[in-house]
Design a protein around this nucleic acid. Structure first.
Lengths: 354, 354
DNA sequence: TTGTAAGCGTTATCAT
DNA sequence: ATGATAACGCTTACAA
């Protein structure tokens, strides 16, 4: 007897009919955009319950309003790689917060261009886009986003001219921590650097090598240190991890002859590795060697130590991005933000031994 | 002179008109669902370029096809908390893979019920839902999903009757590793357990306490061990981290009197902590004490050790979930899967000293 | 190979 | 406070 055999899901029109009201009234009952009398409201809701109607179909609503309530976050490569950096997660959390006012969810998109059938920036039903990181690929993503006319915010990446950007005071922050080290009296200082470019090669860095470094974060943090210690030696790590820090730490600390009295690492993870390396070699931190980090993340497994570090406002970074997106979606102008890291003294730095 | 002052974005209809073809033909040029002559195809693309048309509006396409190409992943609480577990990330990666055949993206949704205006399961334009974890809240999410009639898969959670579920052979896997320990000749064995319930209290666990444990994973992995070592002592950690492992490790190893010769930890992170605790106490691993883990994740910072552990197929877990979602979306029946962990011998277990 | 036509389920505008 | 009506931009039978 049914018009169709597969019992089609009830629509707002069905509910309206059952409740004896017009579709527009029924719509308003659910959206609350206009006053509705208590009586009709109740009638509509009753009819909805009756028919198993759970609310307006988001797809149809989206088409009509032109909003999907979804913001894309574009990460580089495998999710694994992106989430390896411990600041990414708090940042995403902040983003979720910043977006909350908008009622928007986060769509994870991978930056791999090729993959057939993969959901891409070109076809995703999103209201805005947040680009993370600073790979060359960012460029391509940016083009797509632009041609779709979507609002976009870039976090720590080489955004073009007019794209609002959330960045960090990397250079200045590095200088702050370097100055702390100098004030303690150190002058034989070494840096454990993040990768200089996509190559990820490890080892001592020839000063001229910096000219060809492509990763902004690495370069800026190094520049901050050399402003204070122009002759600081540097070792590049293969990535930001404790194990990489251990490797770099050994390189720097093994030889008592050239051993620095302080090591400035470009991430907390690396710093933790340096501490491990030092302890392996029988050196005490901070008595024999001071170690400073960068990021201010909680590093698991360095025991009683509290890392001296620059705390970067990871959550706030995400939240700021979310807020800028929200503004753009409201038609307001968005602005770029340069966030400030704060010095956090810990137990891993001290004056060098007499 | 323009019909409107704000230059409206071009639509497929505009493109069709400009190219002198019908809307349906233009549509097909972009979707590729039907053969189109090379000539018209070119004409349409040219017109599209001309008008700055970048492809069909996903919103409209979604409404028409009833598909958004988005799958929601519901995580408990803050993203931070969810991503603390190192298996979550590879799992999400696997999920992305499993979903790739579908061309679907992943929408991150937080499980917090309240939050006004937050994007919720009720209003998100998704084709299917993946529920992760085993909080009581899963229940609520499940109800929403059900009433919306969305396909759903649960990963390691207490899904109801007919919900396809991806689980792990926790009990059996724990038994496997316990047997390995016994075969090495140990009989004084202790367990470092994950939290028993939301309370997260640390310390030695009274055997009767297990009856009230609510976390399946913890209970199952413990049951596997007691099948081999009925009298194994257990200490609960406050969470799955290296630092918690250190605390638990100290509790177990400090007293030489009752010191076990082997410790079975319920996660690799905990195991890494136990190793640190042992080394702090001057014990060598595995000579003085054997340590086994669970998960098979890469633990940063345990230096030369390779953890003896059960490798859980994290990526595959995600991929399986993705594949089941894909099946359901194709109208096929989905099935529950119980995945198998595999034993990976490492350098952290050895026979007890004579 | 291409065109015609009928929606997909909402919501916004305007009138009542 | 409520209702009629017209889009929103696309896809897909089906017809030509």
């Amino acid at each position: 007897m049914d018009p169709s055999d597969a019992p089609r899901r009830a629509t707002l029109a069905d509910v309206a009919r059952a409740a004896g009201v017009s579709p527009s009234t029924a719509s308003v009952v659910f959206s609350g955009k206009t006053k509705v009398s208590d009586a009709t409201s109740r009638r509509v809701r009753a009819a909805a319950d009756e028919l198993g109607y759970t609310g307006p179909d988001p797809l149809a609503a989206s088409l009509r309003t032109g909003r999907s309530g979804i913001v894309a976050v574009v990460l580089e490569g495998q999710l694994r790689a992106a989430f390896l950096d411990p600041v990414t997660i708090p940042m995403m959390d902040g983003l979720a917060d910043g977006l909350a006012s908008l009622g928007a969810g986060i769509l994870l998109l991978r930056d791999e261009s090729g993959e057939e059938g993969a959901p891409s920036l070109t076809t995703a039903p999103v209201d805005a886009v947040v680009l993370i990181g600073c790979s060359g690929r960012t460029r391509a993503s940016l083009d797509i986003v632009r041609s779709r006319g979507l609002p976009v915010v870039v976090i720590e990446g080489d955004a073009g001219e007019d794209v609002p950007q959330i960045s960090l005071d990397n250079r200045h922050a590095a200088e702050v921590i370097a100055r702390h080290i100098r004030e303690l009296g150190h002058d034989r200082v070494a840096v454990v650097a993040l990768p200089l470019d996509a190559g990820h090669e490890r080892g001592l860095i020839d000063p001229e090598r910096w000219a060809s470094a492509t990763v902004d974060v690495t370069r800026d943090r190094f520049a901050g240190v050399t402003a204070v210690f122009p002759d600081a030696r540097a070792v590049a790590a293969g990535g930001s991890s404790i194990d990489e820090g251990v490797i770099a730490g050994r390189t720097l600390l093994a030889d008592p002859e050239h051993r620095p009295t302080a090591v400035i690492a470009q991430s907390d993870l690396l710093a933790a590795g340096v501490i491990r390396a030092a302890e392996e070699l029988g050196l005490r931190v901070p008595e024999d060697v001071s170690v400073a980090g960068f990021d201010g993340v909680t590093v698991d497994g360095i025991g009683p130590h509290v890392l001296t570090t620059m705390v970067q406002p990871a959550v706030q970074k995400g939240r700021a991005a979310g807020e800028q997106v929200a503004r753009m979606l409201r038609g307001e102008a968005a602005e770029s933000l340069d966030l400030t890291s704060t010095f956090r003294p810990g137990t891993t730095t001290a004056p060098p031994r007499g």
